[in-house]
């Protein structure tokens, strides 16, 4: 563990401030709580919100898993995992089932999460209304008054133009029937996993200085129309490494002739399945 810094880098006063924001977020599911985000030794936009949330809830007995794009060994996941190994000295793992705390960028693990686990999302733009209304003063009002018609204007526009809702990631959801929330840029494939998830879901946006939360077993509904219901992505082929046909796949270009293969984006789930098959 690094000398000269507090456990998990942040000072205790800052952690208390962030925990208060988290508690408020848990109490008002889907509501974006402003918090005094600190400058972190990693750049804004690279997970500083998630890191601050993780630093505020992590304890010495936690087992931490960090993924980026579903994988444990993408460079930024490695960097963040090392940061906590260095500043908190906690045990780290790549196994979803062993982790008590999972920080993620852009994916929810394929293996269902359990009660007692915490999933921390890194969020670049916490405001789901941002693309229709750039002004914070206005969007806060729209949330306060649940004026969400404009979200459906966007979905309507997609269907009119493309014949279907064309958002494939960061697909907006309604939490607990009240707040419209950005699920962070996870693929819409993962949206159904958020609904009534037994684990606690925490979202941190460092640069935008917002924290929000979905408590365990809370309803999370993807916005849609009655006659154009929400759908997730599907692939014609299973994962070419483990054979799974119910997971989110990455496309890998294997030569300069345009040959491609499709493999699981969740590297841990893929390896576990391969081991099981062997």
């Amino acid at each position: 563990m690094s000398k000269g810094y507090n456990f998990a880098y942040l000072d205790e006063q800052t952690k208390r401030m962030i925990r208060r924001a988290i508690l408020k977020g848990v109490a008002i599911p889907g509501y974006q709580v402003p918090f005094a985000s600190r400058e972190m030794p990693l750049p804004y936009g690279w997970g500083t919100g998630g890191i601050q949330v993780t630093a505020s809830v992590i304890g010495p007995n936690d087992v931490l898993k960090v993924i980026d794009q579903g994988a444990d060994d993408t460079t930024n996941a490695v960097s963040i995992r090392r940061f906590f190994a260095r500043t908190a000295g906690v045990k780290t793992t790549e196994r979803t089932s062993e982790a008590s705390l999972i920080q993620t960028r852009h994916r929810i693990p394929e293996q269902p999460l359990k009660e007692g686990q915490i999933l921390v999302y890194q969020v670049p733009i916490p405001e789901p209304l941002r693309w229709m209304e750039p002004r914070e003063t206005e969007t806060r009002k729209m949330h306060a008054l649940a004026e969400y018609g404009v979200m459906h204007v966007k979905l309507y526009e997609d269907i009119a133009r493309f014949g279907r809702i064309a958002s494939s990631y960061n697909y907006p959801v309604l939490v607990h029937g009240r707040y419209v929330m950005a699920p962070s840029p996870i693929p819409k494939f993962d949206n159904p996993k958020m609904d009534r998830m037994p684990a606690l879901q925490l979202f941190g946006a460092g640069r935008e200085k917002r924290i929000y939360a979905v408590p365990p077993y809370t309803s999370v509904k993807s916005l849609d129309f009655e006659d154009h219901p929400f759908e997730v992505q599907r692939w014609d082929k299973p994962c070419e490494l483990c054979g799974a046909s119910d997971t989110y796949l990455d496309e890998v270009i294997t030569d300069d002739q345009g040959a491609r293969m499709f493999v699981c984006s969740d590297s841990d789930a893929c390896q576990e399945r391969q081991k099981g098959a062997a």
Partner: peptide, 22 residues
């Protein structure tokens, strides 16, 4: 946004959720 979405907005703002009807 399209003419259709412009007209439909007030309907959606008060809860219309059927694309065909809007």
């Amino acid at each position: 946004v399209s003419a259709g979405a412009n007209i439909g907005e007030r309907l959606m703002a008060v809860g219309a959720r059927h694309y065909g009807q809007i």
